[in-house]
Design a protein around this nucleic acid. Structure first.
Lengths: 245, 245
DNA sequence: CCAAAAGTGTTCAGCCTACACCCATGT
DNA sequence: ACATGGGTGTAGGCTGAACACTTTTGG
């Protein structure tokens, strides 16, 4: 293995581009957009920074990639360290690299987004007192390019919602049709027709209706459903849903 | 601006994660998946490496991010340096970070993909004699995780093709319906019905039929079309196409 | 006159959309 | 008895999919 430690002139352009230049090493950060659903609204988790730069401002949670882990692992570690959460759906979103995005130092940041059910994870371990859930439309101004990250995360989430029922991650195990519809309305940011929605969901044939009712919201009570994980996964592989709403 | 140069113990977990640790800096590479269309088939451009590691094997073109540029710029620079091409559609795809993906050194790679019309860019400047176009299905085994990158690029391209007519980038200025259909068939990897395809394209109302014919392929000749850039851009903003095929 | 590609419409089925009334229950 | 949310079905329009024959002209 030959790794030139310094650039040298060469006519071999092919090689030229591949020099290992110590000075071109950078810090790689991971920032997490954490979407939560509380049975009514979609929210994101933000923290108030208690360190420089931008101390006191709101931001996404984040950390740096370590030498001995990959990005997925770093994202999981960051999420876990700051919130105590583990075993959470996470997906890489996009890599942000504007030269001056962090005024303090050259940092490239890989954004991830996570989906969780707010109530099931009572933050046994919310490690940060300065963390708070915000409704999507009332999120504050964030540091650096974090607002841009959130915008992109929302549009990715919207696309995901059309391709597959996201519910697994964002809903409690048992949930009502109304809650599922609330979730979709939050994600897509529009009202949906109750009957059409239910028909659509039922036609996908991935839910199981229980004999149990949720009596907390209405007098009449609403039937609870669970995902049929097996049917769901099979369906994802075969057709991959389409799901126009 | 305070940037601790070394980690120190602290109870403030919020800060702990954000230490600037020199040792955790990494090299950031950019790899480009270059799709080309030659009026009949979709291809990708690969080079034979003439440097270690993996000298002699086929790979994507790539290079390292420099301190004073962002990733988009690095991708453009890499593409331009190696092929002479400029002013090309490029889009960030995904960031690959397996710890041992490059056995030589810890490298994280951001994959980009580019779309070009093979014939319009006769590689005035193909700087690399060892570069070659491959049909999608006959691409060789590549180094590292480059095959995985290509798979992801193809599926992204397929999704793009459904959201908007990709044609601008991959076709010459004037093209026939058959060529456009060939393009879509290559991307989606399936045969399409001629009449349905034409009806669909026409209903989008973004093409202009010229009085000119391409006589090179058939006795009868086929009408040439150009994109109506204005209508196209307007449409992308308003509806954003949908485009089921 | 034949080979090769271009061009052109219609029918059917499935899916999305819009829409309104009764039900069950706790207070 | 009433207020609140839960639950249910149908008709019309649009869009995607399947499908075959005629036209043109160089050789």
């Amino acid at each position: 293995m030959e790794i030139p430690k310094e650039a040298k002139l060469t006519k071999d352009i092919n090689t030229q581009l591949n020099f290992y230049q110590k000075e071109d090493q950078v810090l790689l950060a991971v920032d997490c957009i954490i979407f939560g659903f509380d049975k009514t609204n979609l929210k994101i988790l933000l923290i108030k920074r208690n360190f420089e730069p931008e101390k006191g401002k709101w931001s996404l949670i984040g950390g740096f990639l370590k030498k001995n882990e990959n990005l997925d692992q770093a994202a999981i570690r960051v999420l876990n360290t700051l919130t105590g959460l583990s075993d959470i759906y996470m997906e890489q979103l996009y890599t942000y690299s504007k030269v001056d995005r962090d005024p303090g130092q050259r940092t490239i940041s890989v954004a991830y987004f996570a989906l969780i059910d707010v109530d099931s994870h009572q933050f046994d371990g919310i490690q940060i007192d300065s963390a708070r859930w915000f409704d999507l439309d009332e999120a504050p101004e964030l540091i650096f390019d974090h607002n841009e990250m959130i915008r992109k995360a929302i549009s990715r989430l919207q696309r995901r919602a059309m391709t597959m029922p996201i519910g697994f991650e964002l809903l409690p195990e048992k949930f009502t049709m109304r809650q599922l519809q609330n979730l979709y309305e939050s994600i897509l940011d529009k009202k949906l027709d109750k009957r059409n929605f239910i028909n659509k969901i039922n036609s996908l044939d991935v839910l199981v209706k229980l004999d149990e009712k949720d009596m907390t919201v209405s007098r009449k009570g609403a039937y609870l459903y669970v995902f049929d994980k097996e049917k769901y996964e099979k369906k994802v592989e075969e057709d991959g849903f389409s799901f126009k709403l």
